[in-house]
Design a binder for these strands. Structure first.
Lengths: 200, 200, 200, 200
DNA sequence: ACTAGCGGGACTCCCCGTTGTT
DNA sequence: AACAACGGGGAGTCCCGCTAGT
C-alpha cells in the first residue's frame, strides 16, 4: 500500500518528463517502466491503460501548478496592499522561480496535450481546458482588483494555444490585437494611447 | 511528373493537418496514404522516409508563413511612412487574416514540432529554430526602426515555446518580466478604455 | 469454511456460463473474479490453477447431469414395467425438463470441452470421455432390456462429437447409417402423421 | 497476385485445422504463421485482423461443405428416381466419404464456432446460422419430396447445437421427442407406431 | 508514378501465477 | 479466506521500409 503509492508517483514523474521531451504517443510504456525498474505488469497494476496514465499525469501537473501560483501570488499579496504592486511582485517572484530551474522550464504539459489532442479521451482534454480557464480566471480577478484602483489603458488575453484548448477561434485575433496595443503603449509618447479610429 | 507533384502536395497537406491534430508520431503513413488514395509504395516514391516528409512539411509551412508575413507587413509599409504606424497596421491586417480563417487557426506546426523534438532529425529542428529566429529578427528589426523615431518605454520578446526552440532557458524569465512591464504600462497613470487579461 | 464453499461454488457457476459462451481459453480468470467480486488471490485460494478449475467444473457438470438422468429415468421406471414404455416415458420427461429451462439449454459443457481438447490436461478429457461412455452405456442398457422383450428393427448411437470424444473414427459413419435407417423406417409402408426433418 | 492467393489459402487451411483442435481463441496467429513460414506482417497483409481470418475461414468451410452435399446428393439423384431411394443412397455415399477420411472427420467448424460465439462478430455467426439453415432447408426439401410419394410415419429435426446456432430454445425438446419416436419405431411391432395419448 | 507482398520490430494490453501480509 | 503488488511472458495489432514488378 505504501510501496504502491511510491511506485505510482515515480511512474508519473518519469512519464511527465518523457512526454515533455517527445510527446505522448512517442513515449512508450516500455521505456517508462525500464527507467522505473519494474515490469509491465507493475505498470498495468497502477494504471488500467495508457490513457489513465495521461489523466493522472495531467491531474498531477495541474495541481502542482495551481499550488505554485497560489504560493507565489499569495506571498506577493502579503508584501503589498496595492493589487497592482502585488501582481508585479508576484510576476517577479514567478520569473525568479523559473530562472532557478536548473535547465530551463521543462515546458508546459498542457501545451503538449493541446498539440496531440486527438490522442486523449474526453476527460483529459476537459481537465486541461478547465485548468487553462482557471489560470484565466485568476488573472482576470487580479486585473479587476487592479482596475478598481487604477484606471486601465489597454486590454489583453490569450493566444493560439488558448484558442485551441478552449476551442475559441477569435482568441488568436484578440491576442494579436493585444500585442498590438502593447506595442502602441511601449512606444507611444507618454499619454494618448493609440485609439481605434486613428489608425487602421 | 505533373501528376507526381500534385500527389506529393496532397500528401504534405494531409500530413500537416494530421500532425496538427495528433502529433507526428501518432500520424501514421498508412493513414495518410489511405486518405490520399494511394499505396505505401506510392508514398515512398515521393519521400524516402517519414523524416523526409517531416522536413518537407516544415519547409512548406515556413515558406507559406514567411510569404504571409512579407505580404502583410509589406502592404502595411506602403500605407504609412512611420514604422510604428506601419507595424500597428500590419498587426491589424494579420489579425484580420486570422479572423477570416474558417475554423480558427489550425495551430502552429512549429510549436507542434517543438513539443516532440526528440522525434525529428537535426535538420528539421534546425529548420524550425531558424524560422523562429527569423520571426524574431523581423520584429526586432521593426522595433529598432521604431525606436529610432520613438523613444521606447519597455522591452519584449519570447515565451516558453521560444525558449525551448532556441534552447535559451532565460527567455521564459525575460518573457514574464516583459508581461510584467506590459501590465505596469497598462495601468500606469493615464486614462484609457477598460480591459481583461490572460497569458499564453 | 462455509463461506469458502459458497464462493467456490459461485466461481464454478460463473466459469461454466462463461465457458459455454466463449470457450475455455477465452474465459479469463480476471473476468471470473471480477464478476464474483473477489480478487485473484481469492481465486487461487480455491483453485491451484486454471486446469483445476476446469476439472472441478466438468466434474460438477457430469454429476449434475447424471443425477438428472437417474432421476428422470428412475421415475419413468416406476411408471411402467415394460422397459420400452419406461424409456419412452423417460424421454418425454426429459424433453419436458429441457422445455422448462428459461432460455433454452445452456449448451453441453462436454461438447465445449471436446472442441478445445488440446487445452485440457489428461484428467479433464478422460473425465469427459468417461461421462460420454456412461451415457452410452446407460442407453445401451435400456436398449438391451427392450430388445429382450421387443424384437428390434434397427440400431443407433453416436455422432461427430461422440466420435471425437471417444476417438472412434467410425462412429460418424455409423451415425449417418443410423439416421439413414431411421429415414427408411419413417417412410416405410405403414400409415402415420406427417413430419419435417433435419440433422445434428 | 498469384503468390498472394496461395499464401492466403495456406493460412486458412492451417488455421482451420488448429481451430478444430483447440478452439479459436487458443489458436494464436504466431503459431499459424510459424507453420506457414511467413511473418506477422504477411499475415496482416492478407487479413486485417483475427476476426477477418475467422470470417474467411467459415466462408471457406461452408462453401466446401455445400459443394460436397451438392455433389453427393446430386449423384444419388441420378441413381434413382424415387426420392426416398435417392436420399438413402445419398446418405450411404456420405457415410462412405466420411469413412474414407484418413483420421476421422476433423469435426464441424460450425459447431466449434457455435461453442465460442462470443468471440466472433455478427457477420461470422450470421454466416454460420445461414449455413445451418441451408442444411435444414435441404433436408426438409428432400423429406417433402419423399412425403409426396410415401406416407411418413414420424417427425424429426435439430438438436442442442442447432438450437444454439439458430437461437431456438424449443428445438432441443423437439429433438428429444424425435429420438423418442425413432426408438418407438425401431422396436414397435411392425405397424401401429406409438401415439401421443397412449403413452405419457 | 505507382502496386503487391512481405520482413522485422515495436507497442499496448492482458493473462496466469507468486509472494508477502492480514 | 482473502488482498496488494508485481514477475514473466506472450497475443494481437500496427508501422516503417524494402524488393520485385509493371
Amino acid at each position: 500500500m505504501r510501496k504502491g503509492a511510491a511506485t505510482r508517483e515515480r511512474l508519473l514523474a518519469i512519464a511527465e518528463a518523457a512526454v515533455l521531451a517527445k510527446g505522448f504517443e512517442a513515449t512508450s510504456i516500455e521505456e517508462i517502466i525500464s527507467e522505473a525498474g519494474i515490469t509491465k505488469s507493475g505498470f498495468f497494476y497502477h494504471f488500467r491503460d495508457k490513457n489513465e496514465l495521461a489523466r493522472e499525469m495531467v491531474r498531477r501537473y495541474v495541481e502542482a501548478n495551481d499550488a505554485l501560483f497560489d504560493d507565489v501570488f499569495g506571498r506577493a499579496r502579503e508584501l503589498s496592499d496595492d493589487p497592482l504592486q502585488a501582481l508585479l511582485i508576484g510576476l517577479k517572484l514567478l520569473a525568479e522561480v523559473m530562472a532557478d530551474l536548473p535547465n530551463g522550464h521543462p515546458g508546459c504539459l498542457i501545451a503538449s496535450v493541446c498539440y496531440q489532442e486527438r490522442l486523449f479521451d474526453r476527460e483529459v482534454i476537459e481537465l486541461s481546458a478547465r485548468s487553462v480557464r482557471s489560470w484565466n480566471a485568476r488573472f482576470r480577478g487580479y486585473f479587476e482588483e487592479i482596475a478598481a484602483v487604477h484606471p486601465p489603458r489597454a486590454a489583453v488575453d490569450g493566444g493560439i494555444i488558448m484558442g485551441r484548448m478552449l476551442r475559441d477561434p477569435q482568441r488568436l485575433e484578440r491576442q494579436i490585437m493585444a500585442f498590438r496595443s502593447f506595442v502602441g503603449l511601449a512606444f507611444a509618447p507618454a499619454p494618448a494611447p493609440p485609439g481605434r479610429g486613428g489608425m487602421s
